[in-house]
Simulated scan of single mutants.
Amino acid sequence: MIDHAHDLASVQEATDRLLTAVAELDNASVARPSRLPGWTVGHVLAHLARNADALTNVLDGRPMYVSGEARDADIARDAPRPLDAQLADLRESDARFRVRGAAPADWARTVELRNGVTDSAARVPFRRWGEVELHHVDLGIGYELEDVPADFTEREIDFLADRFLAHPDVPATRITDGTRAWRTGRQAPRPEVTVTGRPADLLGWLAGRRAGTALEVLGGPLPALPPL
Results as ranks from 00 to 15, higher is better:
216 E>T: 08
52 A>Q: 14
22 V>K: 11
115 N>H: 06
66 V>W: 04
61 G>M: 04
211 A>H: 09
110 T>R: 08
150 A>L: 08
133 E>Y: 08
157 I>V: 12
206 L>I: 11
177 D>I: 10
26 D>R: 05
134 L>R: 07
58 V>M: 09
45 L>C: 14
221 P>W: 12
61 G>F: 03
34 S>A: 15
8 L>A: 15
205 W>G: 00
23 A>E: 15
124 V>N: 00
99 V>C: 07
40 T>Q: 07
201 D>Y: 07
61 G>S: 10
107 W>N: 02
60 D>Q: 06
39 W>N: 04
54 A>N: 03
146 E>P: 11
97 F>E: 05
227 P>A: 02
189 P>D: 15
32 R>E: 11
23 A>Y: 07
167 H>L: 07
180 R>Y: 05
90 L>V: 01
5 A>R: 14
153 T>V: 08
86 Q>H: 15
89 D>G: 01
206 L>H: 03
221 P>M: 14
105 A>Q: 03
139 L>F: 01
161 A>P: 04
46 A>W: 03
191 P>A: 12
169 D>R: 08
90 L>Q: 00
71 R>L: 13
162 D>C: 04
120 S>C: 06
129 W>D: 00
69 E>M: 04
193 V>D: 00
86 Q>W: 01
147 D>C: 15
176 T>Y: 06
164 F>R: 01
194 T>L: 06
162 D>T: 12
215 L>Q: 05
60 D>E: 08
83 L>Q: 05
198 R>P: 02
110 T>H: 09
200 A>L: 11
191 P>V: 06
